[in-house]
Simulated assay, not measured.
Amino acid sequence: MPRDKVSSRERMVNSAIKLLAIRGAAGTTIDGVLADSGAPRGSVYHHFPGGREELITAAALVTGERMSAFLRSDDGPVHPREALAHLAEFWRSLLIAGDYRSGCPLVALTVDGGDQIPAAAEIARKVFTGWQEQYRDLLAAHGISQQRAVTLATLTVAAVEGAVILARAQRSTAPLDDVIAELTALL
């Protein structure tokens, strides 16, 4: 979408997500978001009167919602393998396009944002839990027992997030590809 069709607020949130994914919480600043988004400085205080903390909290919420979209469809529940394939393709594309510098913004908030932005770290905790619950429900809807669905959902979220970290470290999608292949076979 052309920049002029996207609101300043949305551009700033998207930039905050991008910077969290690349620089982490400590490296995501108002100045950095403004430079990346091209939004005017006054937009920060108009859209985010709470400043950096409110902006990063909004970015955490939007990240959670975007990733949750992989696990649902307007046509009913997606198959767990289909959801996993979409998620894998998203991460594969992002890793390659970002030269292996981008990771999960919520991991960044979990690792280095808790002390700086407690509200955003709490959102990250809730979003990860929500992804596990959403995947659990998806698995259960496709015939997996509730108890098994809980452990498979935890394994899936942890394995994919870990694979993204390994892919960044190794500058290769091989860890992600391996994890996806094993999870797909397991499902």
Rank of each mutant, 00 (worst) to 15 (best):
P2L: 10
I96K: 06
E54G: 10
T184A: 13
R148K: 15
G42T: 14
G98D: 08
G98K: 09
D31R: 06
H47Y: 14
L71P: 00
S8K: 02
R81T: 14
T184Q: 13
D137K: 03
S37V: 12
R171L: 11
A58D: 12
E122S: 07
T28P: 03
L187F: 13
E10Y: 09
L139A: 13
G51K: 15
S68E: 13
L55E: 06
D31M: 13
V179E: 03
A169C: 10
S102T: 11
T110Q: 10
L94A: 08
V44Q: 04
V44M: 01
F128N: 05
A141E: 14
R41Q: 11
L87Y: 06
Q146T: 13
Q134H: 02
T173V: 05
R92W: 08
A16N: 02
T173W: 01
D115N: 04
A108E: 08
D75V: 15
V6G: 00
Q132M: 10
G103V: 12
L187R: 10
Q132C: 05
V44K: 05
T29H: 04
I30G: 00
G24T: 07
A108I: 09
R101F: 05
I17D: 00
E53S: 09
R81K: 14
A85Y: 04
Q132W: 02
Q132V: 11
D177W: 05
R136P: 06
V127K: 00
R72M: 15
D75R: 12
R136C: 07
V44T: 02
L138T: 05
E65W: 12
L109A: 05
A158S: 13
R23T: 04
G162T: 10
A181Q: 12
A60P: 02
Y100M: 12
V160L: 01
G162Q: 09
L187S: 10
A163R: 00
L176T: 07
V13C: 04
A120K: 01
A119G: 02
A85I: 09
L166H: 00
L34S: 10
A185G: 09
S145W: 13
S73G: 15
R9E: 14
Q132R: 06
L84H: 00
L139I: 15
Q132L: 06
A21E: 00
R66K: 14
N14D: 11
A58K: 01
D178F: 01
W91D: 05
L95S: 01
P105M: 09
A120R: 07
L176C: 03
S7N: 12
E10T: 13
R66H: 13
Q116P: 05
L84N: 08
W91Q: 04
I180H: 00
R125P: 04
H47R: 11
H46E: 07
Q146Y: 00
M67V: 14
G64E: 15
V160M: 01
T57A: 01
A26S: 08
R66W: 09
G76Y: 15
A25E: 01
A39Q: 09
R23Q: 12
L34E: 04
R148I: 13
W91S: 03
K18M: 08
Q134F: 02
D74A: 13
G51A: 15
A181M: 09
A158T: 08
A26R: 10
A174P: 01
V164S: 07
C104F: 09
